[in-house]
Design a protein around this nucleic acid. Structure first.
Lengths: 233, 233
DNA sequence: AATTTGAGAGAGCGGTGCTCTCGCTTGAGA
DNA sequence: TCTCAAGCGAGAGCACCGCTCTCTCAAATT
């Protein structure tokens, strides 16, 4: 038997669950997380609100499901951009992924706010969100790793005071890369999302006009900062 | 007559308004913006909820008032840090202000989320929030300006493609500074808040351990990126 | 065929933002 | 000094929310 076909009732459950998530995502995209209401989702689906609790034990659990989906969607988008730029130089690959992240955010602002804005439910992110959340970071690590194996990766300066933490991070995240590069990568990773967040959340409103080119060059600057060098295989 | 004493009725109004904001800020700090409720504020103040609408036309207006106060509190904190480090070198002054921003965020996470997290009400930030929101940025501009007049400010590379936007930003923000520095400053400004946001919102949870030193060095790196040079006046 | 399981309906609880009306107090102008 | 309008708080009420509990009924399992 196919693994997706075990039990006819289980399939129906999957379908209803998917329908709920779809409608919830629709409302999320339209009005934002604050306005997402279980009752409205149920209403739109033609059922009564209490029936929804057979599928999600609470509103926050629905939100968590949407968060995981959003992380996966963004991660997939970043991976696709990385694959598409596989033949380009390290800096170009980095900026391609960065622009993919920004593009996804512009296309899905409310979902971006859900995962990189203020934590909505109550601060505690379940462990199930960790793997999907890591996907984008792993893409960047992969770019560094390829550069390290290939044309070379410049080592940014690493202050002595920072070395222990850099070595710890490197051991956790990418033992094959120099700690200096890993520490710079983590910082640039956060800084990149700072750029995207400021644009999406309106902080650039009367400041940056040509955001496309501004972002592209800021991303390239970050790429150089982590040690990626122009040109390449 | 003192400007604060015109009308006894007006003063009472000011006092009640302040009491409402204080209690609202208390609840905001305790539970976050999502849990802030007009009714609970009124209850705590011993009045009925409808009475509150004499002072704030809606919950979002209360939130807006808190947003403005938060921007001012953060701005004041940044200005104080800058004053305290007035005698240090440009890089030290930059990192001092950066650490002040981070420290304020750690002390007031919910207020930080309110102003730099996902926009809660409905995206439109009233124009009254613009001046308080600019204060932190102005502190950074001031540091660059002092360095420009003083021991010198290195000019970061400015790609030709970015030059028009950089000149536009410089004309708007700091006509006396080189466009290359202004463009780098705007990027670093956003990147700095990316670092703070990632720490506060839990993105560093299983990644960065010694956040204090990690942040200090990341901030110093940003300072160098905008052209500030070590050693000082 | 009998029985267990699970899905949906409905009512209901306590809470929310917000509106409207009604008295009452009080400060300010005649 | 007196009057009166303005401003304030109280209260009831509307529509909505998340969530719980019970009931019924159909379908899947045994």
């Amino acid at each position: 038997m196919s693994s997706t076909a075990q039990g006819a009732r289980a399939r129906a459950r999957m379908e209803v669950t998917a329908a709920i998530k779809d409608e919830a995502r629709r409302q999320l995209a339209a009005e934002g997380a604050a306005k997402l209401s279980l009752r409205a989702v149920a209403r739109e689906l033609g059922m009564v609100s209490s029936a929804l609790y057979r599928y999600f034990p609470s509103r926050d659990d629905l939100l968590t499901a949407l968060i995981i989906d959003a992380y996966d969607s963004l991660g997939e988008c970043a991976e696709a951009a990385q694959d598409k730029a596989a033949d380009a130089g390290p800096v170009q690959r980095w900026t391609a992924v960065a622009e993919a992240v920004r593009g996804w955010g512009l296309r899905h602002p409310h979902e971006y706010a859900l995962i990189y804005g203020s934590p909505v439910p109550g601060y505690t992110a379940p462990d199930t969100t960790v793997p999907p959340a890591s996907r984008v970071g792993l893409v960047f690590i992969g770019i560094l790793r390829d550069a390290h194996r290939g044309p070379g990766l410049a080592e940014p300066p690493l202050p002595a005071e920072l070395r222990p933490e850099a070595e710890r991070m490197a051991a956790d995240l990418a033992p094959d890369l120099p700690p200096a590069n890993v520490a710079a990568l983590v910082a640039s990773w956060a800084e990149l999302f700072g750029l995207v967040g400021f644009e999406l959340f309106g902080q650039f409103n009367r400041v940056v006009e040509d955001r496309e080119t501004f972002f592209r060059h800021a991303a390239a600057r970050l790429a150089h900062g982590v040690g990626l060098v122009e040109g390449g295989q």
